[in-house]
């Protein structure tokens, strides 16, 4: 299991589009279970609804937890999404 902490940088926070992007990336790695922890809530990252339910605003700290095949690569890929501000 690997974890990584990131901060939400884009102004709009993790709204529907970023949540969809994250879920899409996670679904490309079915062998790796990805969980996002923010605001004391856990979200299965393959479910955009759960991601949105965690209400990650700009400046919010998010812990990415990956468990399974290619976990390091997956955690880096998702962290990069957060750091790029989902290209917003």
């Amino acid at each position: 299991m690997v974890t990584k902490k990131v901060t939400v940088v884009n102004e709009q926070g993790v709204h529907m589009r970023p949540a969809g992007i994250i879920a899409k990336v996670v679904k490309e790695h079915p062998e790796c279970e990805v969980t996002l922890i923010a605001n004391g809530k856990e979200a299965k990252a393959k479910a955009p609804m759960q991601i949105m339910a965690a209400c990650m605003k700009q400046g919010c700290e998010v812990e990415i937890v990956c468990n399974g095949a290619d976990e390091q690569a997956v955690v880096d890929e998702i962290a990069a999404l957060f750091e790029s501000g989902f290209d917003e």
Binding site: G13, V14, H15, M16, M52, A53, A54, C55, K57
Partner: peptide
């Protein structure tokens, strides 16, 4: 304002 994200989060939490 960021009402938008809060409403979204709340709807999702309930709809799950």
């Amino acid at each position: 304002g960021d009402v938008h994200l809060e409403v979204l989060s709340r709807l999702m939490t309930m709809l799950m």
